[in-house]
Amino acid sequence: MNIFRLGGDMLHVVSIFLLLLKIQTSHSCAGLSLKTQILYMVVFSTRYLDLFFTKPWHSALTFYNTIMKILFLSSSAYTIYLMQKRYKHTYDKVHDTFRIQYLIAAAAVLALIFHLRLTVFEILWAFSVFLESVAILPQLFLLQETGEVENITSHYIFCLGGYRTLYIFNWVWRYFTEHRRNQWLAWGCGTVQTLIYADFFYYYILSRKQGKKLRLP
């Protein structure tokens, strides 16, 4: 564990907290993409299958990972519940039209071609990594459709992007300190994912400089 990874994970937790805070305080999920949340649910549930096989108390790191994995899975499920049940009437279904089945299919094909080992777990893991790298797209697409972006929604995306950026630093750090060399899959997809966020950052910072509300082109 290094400071970059810990910082990244904490930003990830903050982003989830912001998301739930936005929904709970405004009693609305307007501007949020249910499709992105569903993709994250798929990502977490295909990546964290090792929860069933790893002893949480094996080491401090597995304990930490277990807690975080359960947190991500449960908060993701709760967010979907809020959007689909409790605040369903505020959900912007008309604009949230990104076709996620194509993303899922593409991630599945890529995972079948590129994986670290030919096992079900490794292929599902690769699938989750591919899918995570594009999971934010429906959310960005929705923001583009509706134009103006609420502050808290942009903070949510900003935190997610920060989490990905810190993970890249984490990988550079581990490359040199632990000589981790075989993580090309996570590195490649993580970089693509970060670039998608960088595009959002650009407009976010632009709107900040002009002191205006964020508008995506």
Partner: peptide, 10 residues
Amino acid sequence: VAAESGHDEL
């Protein structure tokens, strides 16, 4: 499974 492949990140 996780440790074997070195997936120790989230």
